[in-house]
Design a protein around this nucleic acid. Structure first.
Length: 626
DNA sequence: GCGATCAGCT
DNA sequence: CACAGCTGATCGC
């Protein structure tokens, strides 16, 4: 659940509302629906995202136009020019779902990392610039001023298996049930493609996906079309988790019984079942790592598959990054549950961090006494979701640790919307005066912005007289003019919005000028000595590089005003470049061994039925010879 | 009628 | 409390 950025930041991340539309730059971390809610009525140029995220979003919302997006890939940096000062944004893999990234912003506002939704694995952290990572218990050379952190499971103590391990558990579950004639996989979320790919690869079979339920796996068709089949005789079926999964599972099992068939397998890779109180309590009391699939009373096999970090992973990441300030991007003030945040607050170093006050639009004034007592801050959900009905402003109260006196004054003066320290930035930026506010920010104590990555492009945003012209391509350094009745635009919705912007902004619209400054291959360094991880890292680099190459010249993106740019081949080529040929028996054993080695797990025993078959073949041979 | 928003469900 | 996403009800234009 994304949150609005504080008024001191010139950009929005994953929010599409009238207030975030007033920001000058818009970033999209990934294409899950809860991060694109409102994008159709409240989009605004430019939207920065990866090529893959853009492609999925355009598929979901055909009303949007390709030219709204500026593609930026993992490992790349952009220098974005802004009236308040240029800032650099660098993109890192968020290990959440295909196309999902974290954004690191470095500029006059300080150094801000927005994780989007993420699984902050060691590998994920290693990709961040070295200066922001503390090593061997030491603090990093350069501290992040602020992290917007995905605290979805910040209250969940249970360790999550790695995604590799989760997929292995699924494969093992199937392996252990050779008699199951059908295997139903509830995997139609963006982010579960790896499961289907690995299952398909391991068992040498494509996965049946019902054409009538196409809406559920549209993104999958874009990312891994090769592993799907329309042939219902496949042993593997994609199953929709909705509606009433328990009932569906029971029906499938009962049908098999009626027809004297072996039980089918219904496998649900998800974290949801494990985080339910009754289940999580059992796991916590057992102090066991979730290492295999579990069957519930409905006959559904659950595998813990998480696209978000556990509390443990978050604590570990914060220890490494040692940020000055943490804001949860998830509701419920969950950053407050993190030990790092609690320690930080009790350390009461808040007054020294004037930069943060400015970001949140709070003047740093004379009285800087610290009130060492614990205070209660009203944490009304009405600010978080102003459009929600039936909300009780008094419903939530959180404990906050020592807080500066001026903060107390501000909170009690009540002319500002409630703000939860460290819990959640929830600032209704209703008065858009922030853009015109003359606030001079001190330069950060940190070193000057440095560009990291493959491509450094410069983007300058300025107000340009808006003429609609029929130009279908834009060269870099060209100013973009719009003229007349926008007949060259293939998409009516965009055109409508251009008109809307013209009206509301008095014929002015911010236009970007993009200039590619340089290209180099300085991808972020890797310092881990673990060879396996390093190899994996290299593979994902190759993938990233391929994607990056596809978007090398940022101006290309702007040249695609007309016609759709959703290029299935290109995307398929990227994601499947390392895919083994499905269904091929040639060199199967080797590939299996490689697959399992790559997952760092023992190679499983062959299927009992296969062993039986091999034995019988040997018997036949023997009988033939003698 | 259409689109936005929300509750409910898994 | 608790993924992400779908469906259907409701509201407002």
């Amino acid at each position: 659940m994304p949150i609005e950025m504080p008024q001191g930041l010139p950009f929005s991340v994953d929010t599409w509302s009238p207030s975030s539309k007033k920001k000058r730059h818009h970033f999209l971390t990934h294409a899950h629906r809860d991060h694109t809610t409102g994008i159709v009525p409240h989009f605004s140029f430019p939207i920065y995202s990866t090529f893959l995220t853009k492609s999925i979003v355009l598929q979901q919302f055909p009303q949007l136009h390709d030219s709204l997006f500026v593609c930026i890939e993992v490992g790349q940096s952009l220098v974005v020019k802004d009236p308040d000062g240029a800032f650099t944004v660098t993109v890192f893999d968020a290990h959440h779902c295909p196309g999902a990234v974290m954004f690191l912003f470095e500029g006059y506002f300080g150094n801000v990392l927005h994780t989007g939704d993420c699984r902050l694995t060691p590998e994920c952290l290693q990709n961040l610039p070295e200066k922001y990572r503390g090593k061997s218990g030491k603090e990093p050379r350069c501290k992040l001023d602020l992290i917007f952190l995905d605290c979805t499971f910040g209250r969940f103590f249970q360790q999550f298996p790695s995604r590799h391990s989760s997929i292995h558990q699924i494969i093992n579950c199937i392996w252990k049930h050779p008699d199951a004639p059908l295997v139903y996989l509830i995997c139609n979320l963006l982010g579960q493609e790896d499961i289907l790919q690995q299952v398909s690869q391991t068992f040498g079979s494509k996965i049946f996906a019902d054409e009538s339920k196409k809406a559920g796996y549209k993104a999958l068709e874009l990312i891994n079309p090769d592993i799907l089949t329309q042939d219902p005789s496949s042993r593997f079926h994609l199953l929709d988790g909705f509606p009433k999964l328990c009932q569906t599972a029971r029906t499938l099992l009962a049908d098999a019984q009626t027809n004297f068939l072996s039980e089918p397998l219904v496998i649900r890779p998800s974290t949801q079942w494990y985080v339910r109180e009754e289940v999580s309590e059992i796991w916590n009391s057992r102090k066991q790592i979730i290492s295999e699939a579990i069957k519930d009373q409905h006959g559904i096999w659950h595998v813990c598959y998480s696209m978000h970090s556990s509390k443990e992973e978050l604590e570990w990441a914060l220890q490494i990054l040692a940020p000055k300030w943490v804001v949860s991007t998830t509701p419920g003030c969950r950053a407050m549950d993190l030990d790092y945040v609690k320690r930080k607050l009790s350390g009461s170093s808040l007054t020294s961090n004037g930069l943060i006050w400015k970001l949140f639009g709070i003047a740093e004034d004379s009285s800087s006494d610290l009130d060492a007592s614990v205070i209660e801050v009203s944490c009304s959900s009405i600010v978080e979701a102003p459009t929600q009905r039936n909300v009780n402003p008094q419903s939530q109260t959180v404990k906050v640790y020592p807080v500066p006196q001026e903060m107390l004054n501000i909170l009690s003066s009540s002319n500002l919307p409630p703000l939860t320290l460290f819990g959640r930035a929830r600032l209704a930026i209703e008065d858009a005066t922030l853009l015109s506010e003359e606030v001079s920010y001190p330069s950060t104590e940190n070193e000057p912005v440095e560009a990291v990555g493959d491509i450094v492009a410069e983007l300058s945003i300025h107000d340009a007289k808006c003429k609609l012209s029929g130009k279908s391509s834009v060269n870099s350094k060209d100013e973009v003019h719009f003229e007349g009745k926008h007949e060259k635009f293939a998409n009516d919705a965009l055109s409508a919005d251009v008109n809307a912007s013209l009206n509301s902004n008095g014929t002015k619209l911010p236009i970007s000028e993009i200039k590619v400054l340089s290209t180099n291959n300085n991808l972020p360094e890797v310092f881990n000595s673990d060879v396996e991880e390093h190899v994996h890292e290299q593979e994902s680099r190759v993938k990233e590089k391929e994607l990056a190459d596809n978007c090398k010249d940022v101006s290309i993106i702007l040249e695609t005003h007309v016609g759709k740019m959703v290029n299935n081949d290109r995307i398929a080529g990227c994601s499947n470049s390392h895919l083994l040929s499905v269904g091929s028996s040639k060199g199967f054993n080797d590939k299996f061994r490689k697959l399992y080695r790559s997952m760092n797990v023992p190679v499983p025993e062959p299927l009992p039925s296969l062993v039986e078959l091999m034995k019988s073949r040997k018997r036949v041979k023997r009988n033939g010879y003698f």
